[in-house]
Design a protein around this nucleic acid. Structure first.
Lengths: 208, 208
DNA sequence: CTACCTTTGTGAACTAATTCACAAGCTCCC
DNA sequence: GGGAGCTTGTGAATTAGTTCACAAAGGTAG
């Protein structure tokens, strides 16, 4: 498949969330114009984004909401269950472990890993805190495809290396460092400092 | 000033974090090549990014680390203190309130707002939980320039409207909805579902 | 002072992403 | 069945972003 732009993928994800919303309200069809309005883009952009993957609409009529959302779910790889582990049982790890959003989207979080013996063995809702030492074994056993890194900056690269060696397929990094992984491993980062700095840049250099 | 691409701002932020790291190690100068290697980009990109704001290096020699990092801080708007409030004292709000990263970067978080009477009045470290009803009054009094939204999806737009009306300058949104704000208000969003879907897309449609 | 080495800053070339604009296709209605 | 009215899908045009490539400038050594 032709390489798809990152911005396209983000928008597909956005369209899917709109589709799920209007599907829940029972609306049967929608148009590129509707999706564009909701997503703050243009109808041509919506159609172009979809066109990379096929042709899902009916001319003159628009898109079937259930059909398009099913197609987008499949395109985004949501047609299966993904098992996720969280690494790091600190503030962020705890918030993530308790966050319902994962489950709602079909991601199964069953364990948090930490090296602190006082935390290992406890339970947070459905989530167990396990010993970081068993991380490799569990990944190799196929327990997880995705790891969420919620550890301090200085141990993030080391843990990334470990989960990569154990065969993880994707990493979502919350530590404020730039990680290096082989390019057959998917990597995304959420960096609060970067987001805040983008805000202060925009406020400071306002164009208006 | 000419419009600066979002990708450029993200990279500036990244360069700054590298500069702070090498500054702490006492390294006096660096080059576009060094910064490129750390940031996974090219030296031409680094120089182009900086060139939008001026000319900070010495040919043949590179950049003075303290000077360049000071310049970047100023460009990113970090030359002043920013007061931030967190809205929503749930899981994510709590994690954010306790997160040290804000303070390290010069952002002052002094309060979390919520409407739940059982939470109002308590203290989490240095952070007070205040009544959401007083949000407008406090923003109008100039207590905050930036609001972090950590509320459920269905109340996020309403709260965004309220803080905008009260005169907030920037919003960092953690709720999984697309917010609409006037374009003189800076807006960024952290959307976990979107990040995870970008991962599953990449894993599912692997090119290699 | 000169020759040589290094690294910046920046137009020009290129590549990627977005927007335009319109033919093609579907529906409805007379 | 044919015309009117929509909305898609997509090449072409445009705009944005990145990379190239090199002159200019600073440093150093002889």
């Amino acid at each position: 498949m032709r390489r798809i732009a990152e911005s396209t993928v983000r928008r597909l994800s956005l369209y899917l969330s709109f589709l799920e919303e209007i599907e829940a309200r029972g609306v049967p069809t929608t148009s590129s114009e509707d999706l564009a309005r909701l997503g703050g883009t243009t109808s041509a952009q919506v159609r172009k984004d979809l066109s990379f993957f096929g042709s899902f609409g009916k001319r003159g009529l628009g898109y079937s909401v259930p059909e398009l959302s099913a197609r987008l779910r499949r395109i985004l790889g949501l047609g299966r269950q993904w098992r996720v582990c969280i690494i790091g049982a600190g503030k962020i790890g705890a918030a993530l472990a308790r966050y319902a959003g994962f489950t709602e989207r079909g991601f199964i979080v069953s364990a948090v890993y930490d090296s602190d013996p006082s935390k290992i063995g406890s339970r947070w809702g459905n989530v167990k805190v396990r010993d970081e030492a068993s991380l490799e074994r569990d990944i190799e056993a196929g327990d997880y495809q995705i790891a969420v890194l919620a550890v301090p900056a200085d141990s993030a690269q080391n843990l990334a290396d470990r989960v990569v060696r154990a065969g993880i397929k994707g990493i979502l990094n919350f530590a404020p460092v730039q990680l290096t992984v082989p390019n057959d491993v998917a990597l995304r980062a959420v960096n609060m400092a970067m987001e805040l700095e983008a805000l202060t840049f925009a406020i400071t250099n306002k164009v208006d």
